[in-house]
């Protein structure tokens, strides 16, 4: 009569040295890299809550050497920086956030629709110029948008005479410019995904009586939801952080985007408001984090789809 486990069944434990050699060093390297990557984030957050303008300035001069490292942990926690930024008339942070969220939300959505429509055409329809069209789209995408800044400026100045809403210095104008922005990459990404949806499904739906519009919206778009969400998030994030074009179109600090506004805080070498910028950066991260939390599940499936069958 023996028990479920024989008397000699023993789980052998790995010796510490062996563990370090086989597994441990990977952990060490990973930890090192995490610290490396997160340090700026940590720096910005502590700076924002320190209430001061720079961490080094707040550091007492008697602390030198390794002791100075403790300055990364502020001795006092204060919301001064946040308060200044939210209440000052000089820097209307809430307007910046409103503009940015508005542009990022709506533009990403419209760009998604346009990109998906183009991707559907490239994936499903056969027409003259399909291949050259796809190549041109990719090629044009290679040039950074900054190259077009002069043209954008001139165009928007002229447009302002006719449609002030879309002219230079208006949020509408910036939105208009952004619409053309990431179309190429989005279209490519989505076309690749659409191609994995069997055409049989389209054909079956057509025989069942569905129109092309219905097939596009209720079948292809529905079945490629993961990639749509990826594209939406990526484009939301890119628009949120865009600086050079926004700086040209909306140079006025009273009506601009978060990126331009925060940049303006430190642009003048004589008056650099690092503390305010850090506080603004922390607050500006909130909408991005929210969008990320909503989309994260699809982000994982969307980005890895295709790598594994099924």
């Amino acid at each position: 009569m023996s028990g479920p486990a024989g008397p000699n069944t023993k789980v052998e434990r790995m010796s510490r040295g062996r563990w370090l050699r086989l597994i441990g060093w990977r952990h060490l390297i990973a930890i090192l890299f995490v610290i490396w990557a997160l340090f700026p984030v940590f720096y910005v957050i502590t700076l924002a809550f320190s209430g001061g303008n720079t961490l080094t300035a707040a550091c007492p001069p008697e602390k030198t050497g390794l002791a100075a490292l403790t300055c990364f942990f502020p001795s006092t926690i204060s919301l001064n920086n946040f308060e200044t930024l939210l209440t000052s008339d000089q820097w209307p942070f809430m307007i910046w956030i409103r503009n940015t969220v508005l542009i990022a939300t709506i533009n990403s959505f419209v760009a998604l629709l346009m990109g998906a429509a183009a991707a559907f055409a490239f994936s499903r329809l056969r027409f003259t110029g399909r291949r050259p069209g796809l190549l041109t789209l990719m090629l044009v995408q290679m040039f950074p948008g900054v190259l077009a800044i002069t043209a954008i400026y001139t165009l928007l100045t002229d447009i302002k005479d006719v449609f002030p809403f879309f002219g230079i210095g208006s949020v509408g104008g910036l939105a208009l410019v952004y619409l053309g922005g990431a179309l190429g990459v989005n279209t490519f990404l989505m076309k690749g995904y659409f191609d994995t949806i069997p055409v049989d499904i389209d054909e079956s739906a057509r025989i069942d009586g569905a129109s092309t519009v219905r097939i596009f919206f209720t079948l292809v778009m529905r079945l490629s939801l993961p990639i749509l969400i990826v594209v939406y998030f990526v484009s939301f994030q890119a628009l949120f952080n865009e600086l050079p074009i926004a700086q040209v179109v909306l140079p006025d600090a009273q009506n601009t985007t978060v990126a331009v506004g925060l940049n303006g805080l430190v642009a003048n070498p004589l008056v650099q408001q690092w503390g305010l910028m850090a506080a603004g950066g922390v607050m500006a991260a909130i909408p991005l984090v929210i969008v990320f939390l909503i989309t994260q599940r699809s982000l994982v499936t969307g980005l890895t789809s295709g790598s594994v069958k099924g």
């Binding site: 069997p198 499904i201 054909e203 057509r206 025989i207 569905a210 079945l223």
Partner: peptide
Amino acid sequence: TEPQGRDIAMVFQSYALYPH
């Protein structure tokens, strides 16, 4: 005539069911 106007039904090799 478009497929939907021909009053036909088709069964595909891949079944082509709507997965969702």
